[in-house]
Write a protein that binds this DNA or RNA. Structure first.
Lengths: 96, 96
DNA sequence: TGAATATATGAACAAGTATTCATATGTTAC
DNA sequence: GTAACATATGAATACTTGTTCATATATTCA
């Protein structure tokens, strides 16, 4: 299959967004439903700042979506592709 | 969803293997069938050395498989999961 | 208004990574 | 055997990336 350089880069960027254990754990938590930054930080045992930085990247790649409510921001999985990539990858890791 | 740290790391490593445009282009070529290192290098416009280094990583993650024939080594996609991850990701990039 | 809370951001440093270059291994042909 | 070829590998360098720390923005409550 021939791929334009631009598409190769876009695809690599998508997988890059999933290429860190912290981000994977954040996404794993979000699979069950939306969560606040604080709850995510507690869930993965990271500072809110580090989580916020990571969420920014995930947001820019359209992997997660933010919903503001009062002073909290709730994050959720943006798109069904994301959950499918996640579970397909998990499948490969488990039965690999 | 709760994920052990080990599984999170494994999953991140899997996606890391797909997180580079050069490797994506290599895999895109291999989607159509096996190819030698030289053909891959020509196909993506990289040196054989650089390609060989990348293939090593892909091999270790069980994303590609090597078959030696004479002095050439032919690479192919190792597992159906890989092709599915690839096309699912491409789908997300195109209709994202 | 001011204090407290929730999140975001910029800069800086440490750790990881892709490519290059030189060299090594293994294979075929002579 | 030697020469030529195909691939692999180690070290070095340049580049990228994740986290921390300090600070900023925004919202609620008193």
């Amino acid at each position: 299959m021939k791929l334009t350089e631009l598409k190769a880069i876009k695809l690599a960027e998508l997988f890059s967004a999933l290429s860190d254990a912290s981000r994977i754990r954040l996404i794993a938590l979000l699979i069950d439903g939306e969560m606040s930054v604080r709850a995510l930080a507690d869930g993965v045992g990271m500072t809110e700042s580090a989580v916020s930085h990571q969420l920014r990247g995930l947001r820019q790649m359209h992997l997660v979506r933010a919903r503001k409510s009062g002073r909290q921001v709730f994050y959720s999985i943006d798109d069904d592709h994301v959950a499918r990539l996640f579970t397909l990858g998990l499948d490969h890791v488990q039965h690999g």
